[in-house]
Write a protein that binds this DNA or RNA. Structure first.
Lengths: 157, 157
DNA sequence: GAATTCGTACTCGGATAGTGCTTGTCCGAGTCCAGCCGG
DNA sequence: CCGGCTGGACTCGGACAAGCACTATCCGAGTACGAATTC
């Protein structure tokens, strides 16, 4: 069970936007060139960040993408859910319910379905909790090992 | 991000084995008929439970599968890892590292890779912790709503 | 009547299709900016 | 001057193709048990 690689790209994009000089948007071309990824696919991923309200887009010449809010206001979980949608690990196709609904004597086993569902819901909740307590700013800060953050213009590099 | 449907089948199998009269193995045919799933694929899933030490197999006529140990000694996490293998949610293909390793001034951003990795490792750990505290016996018990567990022979039903 | 053979029922495990989601491409449409006119 | 055209650079967003992991099938091999066979 893994997140998709699209999420990994999403994290990279957020890192670029965070370290970008705030007044200058990062162009789509700049992003996929730096990441070495597919131009159009990466564009779609960035678009998800925009739709989720983590980034803003600027059309036209000199356009691109900017961070929508302070990086300390954006958690890892926000990025996960922007790219992957809501996280529900138990693939509830009601198999337990269907398997045991018509069994003599043990028909109550059918309700194991919701018991399992709720157990995984709790586990998911804990997973989300950890990620919601770590912001993009925290990630950047911890990466720099005390070095001071300097904004750059990725378009120029 | 979801577990596979194979896992859901695995849970159903464990539920059957737990409620089966301990001295009689459950035949492979019995399992896939009750679940309404693919015979051969379900067989492969059960096999994974055997390899992981959650179930035992009996060859030959009258053969089938039994629980390898008491159901209260088997956690949800055991079943997850038997079917899915170890759970690592961050798909670490070193994209962050490669993207920023050769950037002027911000090369330290490359180490964000391991920071993110460890963040997700913590989240995964919490997820596992919840599941390891819930046993198959707990699931069965909570499903029965106070009704007493009666063992049956699924082969006969 | 006991050992051997045989048949049946079952699991083991690899090779190999089918399917659906992730990944990637293409293209038309919309938007913004800058420079070029014409009044 | 300055207001409106025009072209280029860019994002928007859907339709569609490719790749890969999950799902599913098939088949040969191994194993246990019981019944028939043989001496």
């Amino acid at each position: 069970m893994q997140l998709t690689k699209a999420f990994e790209q999403g994290v990279c994009v957020m890192a670029m936007l965070t370290t970008q000089i705030p007044s200058i948007p990062v162009a789509s071309a700049t992003i996929h060139q730096r990441l070495g990824t597919s131009p159009t696919y990466t564009q779609k991923i960035v678009r998800k960040l925009v739709v989720s309200g983590l980034a803003t887009s600027v059309s036209g010449q000199g356009g691109g993408f900017c961070l929508a809010k302070a990086s300390k206001e954006i958690s890892c979980l926000d990025v996960v859910e922007a790219i992957e949608g809501p996280v529900v690990t138990f693939p509830d196709s009601q198999l337990l319910h269907h398997a045991f609904a018509h069994s003599n004597g043990l028909a109550n086993l059918a309700s194991a379905n919701s018991v399992v569902y709720q157990t995984f819901a709790k586990a998911d909740e804990q997973w989300r909790k950890v990620l919601s307590n770590v912001s993009i700013a925290d990630i950047i800060h911890d990466s720099l090992h005390g070095e001071k953050l300097t904004f750059v213009d990725w378009n120029e590099m």
